[in-house]
Design a protein around this nucleic acid. Structure first.
Length: 478
DNA sequence: ATCGGCTCGCGCAA
DNA sequence: TGCGCGAAGCCGAT
């Protein structure tokens, strides 16, 4: 097993049970943190317990994210029970303290957790590793190559991360073992959980309604199957057309770790019929391919791997090495921020408040359609996310206002909100992060501009607007 | 429909 | 030191 862990403290290992503190990766299959914890428990011949703390309203999350998460946790609970691994789900407002009291109560000998580059989670982990008396280990169960292994600095863009990642990818894409039925019993049985009560937690913000997409490992797996059999071959050609069903729709599942990106990669590789290194080469040689030539399945698979792996892992790199600034304008490259500052006095044709954006009340029916897609479905098409965020910059007084409005809306309405991908994507759109400088223009400075006319030439804007324009109630009934 | 210019800075070759 | 080129573009000329 390739090393994917690092120590969070230098305390000794105890003799009690091994605890996997599940946080970012809510799955029992293909989870390297859980597998590492079980491997350690086998070596020590001790029980293995899993704990998850539900923090209601985490970073602006609402009912839709909560319900999606509970659906996923239920499946994990059942699967872990079948493997004789008790899953303790607690609900509390001080995650770090709740975890410390749990591990103290069960006299844990070793704590294993999964990795997240986000500030709040890193703070919890620092607190826990300080306040317990035993060893704490962090495993990157989310990225294929652990974020701290692939690079030790904030990368300038995909082009600098890509070669580092590709050098290690093959090695880290080893076959993932199955979870075993755990042979060591514990007195700390999993408590019975009333899922209905949990779902109806009174602390959850119910002003944003549930969506139809269902959470959990099996729904994630069906979304993957559907993508591979019905959409993958179109991905190369149609992925930027919000009317074509060419996207994977996996990002909510990937965000919650309900599916492992390594699993997605291996199934895509298998279906494409060529090796991962061939897919990487196809991407590297993309420029040499005649753009007029028919895009093959291999080209599609290659483009998908680029987005699934390179850009996702770049987002983790971005948050990991800009922990204090990834959601502020201070993470913008100097050339971009300086040019945005110069443009702060240029007149804005439209200025909207956060509430106007939230209610999809701009003059631009294309922008309003993007907003409605997100509010109604919990998911905005990837291409439209760029247009959406860039227009918020265009129609607010300052980059600060734009950034905070975009992050607020993203975290509140997207099922995959509060993810490094969201912060990186918004910083790319508004602040030129991971992008190059472009021809200067009012408001945007050197940050890449996007125009509605560009959308008009790429897809059927009218049809997209139509799809989300019927006057459906945007907000849950009180 | 297609092309070139716009703009900055990193990584690498020389 | 110089050169190539980049996370998804725009615009005007042809």
């Amino acid at each position: 097993m390739k090393d994917r862990f690092r120590l969070l403290n230098d305390k000794p290992q105890g003799t009690g049970p091994v605890i996997y503190w599940m946080d970012r990766d809510m799955r029992s299959r293909d989870n390297w943190a859980l597998l590492y914890a079980q491997e350690q428990a086998f070596a020590l011949k001790v029980p293995l317990l899993v704990i998850y703390n539900i923090l209601p309203g985490f970073l602006g999350g609402t009912l839709r994210q909560h319900v999606f998460k509970i659906q996923g946790l239920k499946e994990v609970y059942d699967d872990l029970s079948a493997h004789n691994i008790p899953f303790h789900i607690v609900s509390g407002t001080h995650t770090e303290k709740d975890i410390v009291s749990f591990v103290t109560d069960v006299s844990a000998g070793l704590i294993v957790t999964d990795f997240s580059p986000l500030r709040i989670q890193r703070g919890w982990k620092e607190y826990v590793s300080k306040h317990v008396s035993v060893r704490c280990v962090e495993v990157d169960a989310h990225n294929i190559v652990p974020a701290w292994v692939v690079s030790q600095k904030s990368e300038i863009g995909a082009r600098t991360l890509r070669p580092k990642l590709y050098k290690l990818l093959d090695e880290y894409l080893e076959a993932i073992p199955s979870l075993k039925k755990h042979p060591y019993n514990t007195d700390h049985k999993a408590p019975d959980i009333d899922w209905v009560v949990l779902e109806h937690d009174p602390h959850i913000d119910k002003t944003v309604s549930e969506v139809s997409l269902k959470g959990g490992m099996s729904h994630a797996q069906s979304a993957l199957k559907k993508f591979i059999t019905a959409k993958l071959s179109l991905y190369g050609k149609d992925r930027n057309d919000p009317l074509c069903e060419a996207q994977s729709n996996l990002s909510p599942y990937l965000h919650y770790g309900m599916i492992s990106s390594a699993r997605v990669v291996s199934e895509v590789v298998e279906h494409s019929g060529v090796s991962i290194s061939k897919l990487i080469d196809a991407q590297k040689n993309k420029a040499k391919i005649d753009p007029k030539s028919e895009l093959t399945l291999v080209d599609s698979a290659s483009a998908f791997i680029e987005e699934l792996v390179v850009r996702r892992e770049l987002s983790d790199n971005f948050c990991l090495y800009n922990p204090q600034t990834y959601d502020t304008v201070d993470c913008f490259p100097a050339w971009a921020l300086a040019s945005l500052r110069k443009e702060e006095q240029s007149p804005r044709e439209y200025i909207y408040t956060r509430a106007q954006f939230e209610k999809a009340q701009t003059h631009d029916d294309l922008w309003n359609a993007c907003q409605k897609e997100m509010v109604e479905t919990g998911k905005m098409h990837g291409y439209m996310r760029m247009y959406w965020a860039k227009k918020i910059l265009e129609w607010t007084r300052s980059p600060e206002d734009a950034l905070s409005i975009a992050i607020y809306l993203n975290d509140r309405y997207e099922l995959d909100g509060r993810d490094p991908n969201g912060y990186a994507g918004i910083a790319w759109s508004i602040g030129g992060v991971h992008d190059r400088a472009w021809f200067g223009r009012p408001i945007f400075g050197l940050v890449r501009y996007m125009a509605r006319s560009g959308c008009e030439s790429k897809f059927d804007v009218k049809a997209y607007i139509q799809k989300f324009s019927p006057e459906v109630s945007l907000f849950a009934k009180k």
